[in-house]
Every structure is written in C-alpha cells, then in structure tokens.
Design a protein around this nucleic acid. Sequence first.
DNA 1: AATAAAGGCAACCGCCATTAC
DNA 2: TGTAATGGCGGTTGCCTTTAT
Length: 247
Amino acid sequence: MGRSPCCEKAHTNKGAWTKEEDQRLIDYIRIHGEGSWRSLPKSAGLLRCGKSCRLRWINYLRPDLKRGNFSDEEDKVIIKLHSLLGNKWSLIAGRLPGRTDNEIKNYWNTHIKRKLLSHGIDPQTHRPIKDSIAETDPKTVPYQLPTAVTVPPQNGAVENSFTVRPKTENSSDNVASTSGTTTDEDIRQNGDCYYNDNSGEKEVNLDLTLGSGSTSLVRSGGRSGNGSSADSKPWWDPVMAARLSLL
DNA sequence: AATAAAGGCAACCGCCATTAC
DNA sequence: TGTAATGGCGGTTGCCTTTAT
C-alpha cells in the first residue's frame, strides 16, 4: 500500500527560494506560528511543499539562528559529541544554540572530517588511522581534545554529568548505530571514547545536559488535534538515556 | 582571461516515529 | 489494533562560488 505524496508536486516550486517566498513564509509564521506544515503553503500562498517550507524556516529563516563561522569551542563540542553519538546531527545541534542540524552536518562533512583525517584520526571511529601520516610525519601532531568542554545547557534542562572512558581494543564503532536501534550491550561495549586528555588521564568529562523542550530532543511527529506541535512530549534519545543510566 | 576542479552549502528525498482516528 | 497522516531526521544531490592551472 503506497503512500500519498506529501504535496502536489506538479504545482510546487523547487530549488532556491526567492526573497518574496521567504517573506511570505516569515510573515505567515509570525502571525500563525510554526506547525501544520502540510497546510501552511496553501494558507501562506506559497507554491511549495510543506516539508520544503519547514526546512527553509528551520535551517535559514528562524530568527534565533547564529550565522557565520564556527568557533574553536563549537568545533570541539561537535567532535566530542560526534564521538559519542555518531551522526545524530539533531542531537548535536541541540547542544549548539543557534546552529541547525543541517549546518552542523555540512560543516562536519566539509571541514571537520578533513581536519580529523589530516591529524590521522578516522572521523567515523574517532580512532587513529593505522599507518596514517600522523605516525610517520613529524610535522603532524596527533589530534587531541581538551579535558572538558562546556556544553551550553538547554532551557529547563536537568543537570547530568557524563563520563567518557577510553575505547577498548574491542570497541568497534560509535554507540549510535545507523539503524537507530542500539542495545544495552552495544552501549556497554561501545560506550566509550578514544580520546585522552593531554595529562594522560583516561577519562574525559563532558556535560551532556538533557532536558525537555528542545527542538532536537523532541520528536513530535504524528498528527495533533489542533495542528500544533507545541504539546509534544519530550523525547529522550534511547542511546543517551541508556548511557546515562549506566552511571 | 578562460577553463577545470574542488569546496561549500541549500535543498530535496526517502524513510521512520508518533499519534489521531 | 490497524491504518493513514504528519513531522522530523539523516543521507544525498546539485548548484553556485572559489581556487588552481
């Protein structure tokens, strides 16, 4: 049984947004708020797919977005969270106010990946690449993360601290599996981080505050009676929740 | 100055989770 | 309880800009 398309593709625009379209979307959301993306295009007089409107708003038009280059501190937070969560861009974005998952994903793929590779670190496993240039080229200093990174807390968050231990030889990959299903055993085996700090200390502390109300930690999904997603229940990432429970 | 290659990023696509009915 | 509708996420694509030749 197939699904109906999310919008009438024959009558929708694609590609880059025009200033007029942006303004229509901004004006509409200012008045009516976010949500009801499916019906929004028609109501706002836009010949766009609802998903396209949502993406445009979240990734580009939202007033609280922080544009511009990533700071060194943001770099470190992204790398560290990626070592813990894998490609969970929305979760990572939730720790970086003003940044979107798409922006972080692009930044990772275009900058950080290369940076790690140049330091002989596998960007997927966060482990040194065997026979990498880092081990043979004296000019290349092995990449090391600082002892701790302060991750900005989210509104209404409940404090949680988190200890990351060095990966064992048997650890294979990131905790977050690509399938999205991670067992407790996966977490026990892989819930580690390779990085050591400069002092040789084996543990790295990372404040991974979790809380409700964050866009990225909430999976509203589904239909709501009034078409609003504001009443969505907090959604705890099962990986994060399970890992916190191990403490 | 012209062209090709590489980089950067916005946008799209398909799938999954959630929820109303 | 099953199905359809909807929102959200991650992967990928394609276009525009920048850099190298």
